[in-house]
Amino acid sequence: MTRISVTVDGTKYEDDVEPRLLLVHYLRDRLGLTGTPVGCDTSNCGACTVDLDGATAKSCSVLAVQADGSEVTTVQGLAVNGEWHPLQKAFHERHALQCGYCTPGMIMAARGLLRENPAPSADDVRHALEGNLCRCTGYQNIVRAVLDAAGATEPSAQEVAP
């Protein structure tokens, strides 16, 4: 067992974990943060994408011990005081999800793109999402949603706090 300290969606956790425990299983099975799903075992599908210290990561390809001391943001941590993130709104308005299983990872990956490239082209969006597979939408509405959300401001606690 190895002692780790991780902040997830703003809450600090300390736990003893087996070194082999995958970050995604730590989130799901230990912390009960089941908003981040598992879709494959080869790092291909991207459903488990989270933000790890400011950069996207596939949480099935990171050991929980590697996240020791880190800050993790999951799809469950995006809304602030109930206000959805612009990507969450855009996915809803553009019908960019059907079954929704890929959606948490899609949104986190798209968020990573917009942080680095606030005004992407449709082609940029497609390439930035190449590691996130969707089986329902054919991607077209996902691309539309990300383009819609580009330029919108992320909510922050300061802005929406009364």
Binding site: T34, P37, V75, Q76, L78, W84, Q88, Y101, P104, I107
Partner: peptide, 8 residues
């Protein structure tokens, strides 16, 4: 679905 509140 967009907020991760789903029950899979």
């Amino acid at each position: 679905l967009v907020t991760g509140q789903t029950t899979w």
